Amino acid sequence: MEPIALTLGQKFEIEKFSREIDSSNDPQALRSIAKDLLVAWKQQQAASAWVLRQTYGL
């Protein structure tokens, strides 16, 4: 199975937001970003599980 590859646009977005995070000196802002990322990660896991259930009838 091939690994999932990021598009060039996604790679640029990662770089943009990585630089923004690196330049932040605000711990509260960084906590907020971390929590937003946690929610997005779990939503992506839920979406992937839903697709698998729909595809394979699980």
Rank of each mutant, 00 (worst) to 15 (best):
M1D: 08
M1S: 10
E2L: 12
E2H: 07
E2S: 14
P3Y: 05
I4G: 00
I4A: 04
I4T: 03
A5G: 02
A5I: 08
L6A: 04
L6V: 00
L6H: 01
L8A: 15
G9Y: 08
G9V: 14
Q10K: 05
Q10N: 01
Q10H: 04
Q10A: 09
F12T: 09
F12R: 11
E13S: 08
I14E: 02
I14R: 08
I14H: 01
K16T: 11
K16E: 12
K16V: 10
K16I: 07
F17W: 09
F17R: 05
F17E: 03
R19C: 01
E20F: 07
E20T: 07
I21R: 13
S23D: 05
D26M: 03
P27C: 07
P27I: 14
L30K: 09
S32A: 12
S32Y: 06
I33S: 04
I33E: 03
A34R: 13
A34E: 15
A34D: 13
A34N: 08
K35S: 14
K35Q: 15
L37R: 04
L38E: 15
L38C: 07
V39Q: 04
V39R: 02
A40F: 01
A40Q: 03
K42V: 10
Q45A: 03
Q45H: 03
Q45G: 04
S48M: 05
S48P: 00
A49C: 01
A49R: 10
A49V: 03
W50I: 08
V51G: 01
L52K: 09
Q54P: 00
T55L: 13
T55H: 09
L58W: 10
L58T: 11
L58S: 06
